[in-house]
Simulated assay, not measured.
Amino acid sequence: MRIIIYTGKGGVGKTSIAAATAVRLAAEGHRTLVMSTDSAHSLSDSFQLTLGGEPVKIAERLWGQEVDSLRETEKHWGAVQSWLSGLMSWAKLNDITTEETLVFPGMEELFNLMQIKRHAASGTYDVIIVDCAPTGQTLRLLSYPNLLKWWMEKIFPHERRLIKWARPIAKAVTGGLELPNDQVMDSIEAFVRELEDLQAIIADHAVATMRLVINPEKMVIAEARRAFTYLNLFGFNTDAVIVNRVLPEGAGSGYWSTWREIHAKYEEEIRGCFSPLPILSVPMMEREVHGLPMLKRIGQAAFSDCDASAVLYRGRIQEVRKEGDDYFLDLELPFVRKDQLQLSEKGDELTIQAGPYKNKVLLPRSLQGRPIVGARFSEQKLTIRFGGRSV
């Protein structure tokens, strides 16, 4: 079983790359499911056929699915939503905008991702390709089980007993306010347990990997760096970067030659930012990418020199850890000598210069505002020590 999750800034061609990967793997003999967990689906447009909330056969050994957000929300959150609706009615906040707040931001995407767990457990597919919501913000929510597990074990049982005892009193005192019943509490507990299981699947580096899709553009690269930092911070393995819509050599003169120079400059920056990850390149096509023939061409371009189903890189390139009052940032820097290294920090960006090359790392919030108080380079790993924030 392999799970490959594609993420990236909206508009970079993430859906096309996910679909093209699925087409290639199915052609190589893998039973492949490509599924969209983005609320704004475009997978149907990519294949030029109608997909639904359950897997639809597209070609030999290839299925597609656009997860139904409303159905998944009802399945995982229906009891809680019903109780919240009653609470809003009791508070006389029952207009149409109130109904939209009954599902918290990011929850729909999480419910959609639960389908990964279902399909992984079924054994029906060899490979699951996930077209994830832009920038992978949903994946940051998957760090919550660590906190929720503690709450479920230490706080939730006491709250549950307290609510059961207080329910009739609260209804009488408040004039009809219903505290959550056992069905609501069971629903919350089941959701947290499922989320823990899903996190365990996605955090298994032998099974699941993330792939970032980017364009050679300044803002897109900045967004990808941010996503990459947090994927590393939360322990998810990114095994490749796909640079999509690169103008090929000989794209033309004048107007196009200028753009080719810009793309070449940003391709160099991408290598500096994401090395030693494999950087796969897909040229800009002469026409729109949709339908099986064009998706096949994209898959061939992206994976001409590697196995699309393989784990293309193993290991954490960045890791943040805390020892006492100090924080440490570990960075893998292959093919670099100690005497070549220079460090500089500005705002939330750390620049590591090795000779003529620069590697820019976006610092997570836990490290921002902390001064660098030491650094050590050993066995191709740079360890940077950060002190406390100045008051």
Results as ranks from 00 to 15, higher is better:
residue 196 E to C: 09
residue 269 E to N: 10
residue 177 L to Y: 12
residue 367 L to G: 01
residue 166 A to V: 14
residue 29 G to P: 07
residue 314 R to N: 06
residue 285 M to E: 12
residue 148 L to T: 05
residue 196 E to S: 05
residue 171 K to W: 08
residue 193 R to K: 15
residue 215 N to Q: 12
residue 360 K to Y: 00
residue 82 S to M: 09
residue 264 A to R: 14
residue 46 S to D: 01
residue 86 G to F: 02
residue 312 L to M: 11
residue 283 P to E: 13
residue 27 A to R: 12
residue 218 K to D: 07
residue 104 F to A: 14
residue 226 R to P: 03
residue 348 D to H: 10
residue 284 M to H: 12
residue 223 E to D: 15
residue 42 S to N: 15
residue 253 S to E: 15
residue 68 D to M: 00
residue 171 K to N: 15
residue 308 A to V: 09
residue 114 M to D: 08
residue 368 Q to S: 01
residue 166 A to I: 11
residue 315 G to E: 05
residue 236 F to H: 02
residue 345 E to N: 03
residue 367 L to S: 08
residue 236 F to V: 05
residue 383 T to A: 07
residue 34 V to C: 12
residue 217 E to Q: 10
residue 10 G to L: 10
residue 368 Q to M: 14
residue 264 A to K: 15
residue 204 D to P: 05
residue 385 R to H: 00
residue 66 E to W: 04
residue 183 Q to E: 13
residue 105 P to I: 07
residue 376 R to K: 08
residue 175 G to S: 07
residue 22 A to T: 02
residue 361 V to A: 13
residue 62 L to S: 03
residue 261 E to W: 03
residue 8 G to S: 02
residue 298 I to T: 14
residue 384 I to D: 04
residue 128 I to D: 00
residue 231 L to M: 11
residue 4 I to V: 05
residue 289 V to L: 04
residue 348 D to Y: 02
residue 88 M to W: 04
residue 114 M to Q: 14
residue 209 T to Y: 01
residue 174 T to W: 05
residue 370 R to T: 02
residue 214 I to R: 14
residue 228 F to N: 00
residue 225 R to Q: 15
residue 218 K to M: 05
residue 65 Q to C: 13
residue 169 I to T: 10
residue 148 L to Y: 11
residue 384 I to Y: 04
residue 329 L to F: 09
residue 16 S to T: 14
residue 18 A to H: 00
residue 391 V to M: 10
residue 237 N to L: 04
residue 259 W to R: 15
residue 161 R to K: 12
residue 153 E to D: 15
residue 76 H to N: 13
residue 28 E to L: 11
residue 130 V to R: 00
residue 324 G to S: 06
residue 78 G to D: 06
residue 33 L to F: 03
residue 116 I to H: 04
residue 92 K to H: 10
residue 201 I to M: 13
residue 312 L to G: 09
residue 151 W to N: 07
residue 109 E to T: 04
residue 113 L to P: 02
residue 64 G to S: 01
residue 92 K to T: 07
residue 316 R to M: 10
residue 260 R to M: 07
residue 388 G to N: 11
residue 5 I to M: 13
residue 295 L to C: 04
residue 150 W to H: 04
residue 238 T to Q: 02
residue 387 G to P: 01
residue 18 A to C: 09
residue 376 R to V: 03
residue 10 G to A: 08
residue 145 P to S: 12
residue 182 D to P: 06
residue 97 T to E: 15
residue 158 H to K: 15
residue 269 E to G: 00
residue 65 Q to T: 06
residue 12 V to T: 08
residue 35 M to T: 02
residue 86 G to A: 10
residue 106 G to V: 04
residue 355 G to K: 04
residue 155 I to T: 15
residue 291 G to C: 10
residue 320 V to W: 12
residue 332 E to H: 13
residue 351 T to N: 11
residue 101 T to V: 06
residue 261 E to H: 13
residue 20 A to L: 01
residue 26 A to K: 02
residue 186 D to A: 14
residue 360 K to W: 01
residue 287 R to L: 07
residue 253 S to Q: 13
residue 3 I to P: 01
residue 21 T to A: 03
residue 276 P to K: 09
residue 89 S to C: 05
residue 97 T to H: 14
residue 159 E to H: 11
residue 117 K to H: 04
residue 180 P to H: 01
residue 78 G to Y: 09
residue 161 R to S: 14
residue 373 V to P: 03
residue 89 S to K: 14
residue 211 R to Y: 00
residue 313 Y to F: 14
residue 316 R to Y: 06
residue 58 I to K: 08
residue 115 Q to A: 05
residue 124 T to L: 06
residue 326 D to E: 13
residue 285 M to L: 12
residue 333 L to A: 09
residue 166 A to E: 13
residue 125 Y to T: 07
residue 320 V to S: 02
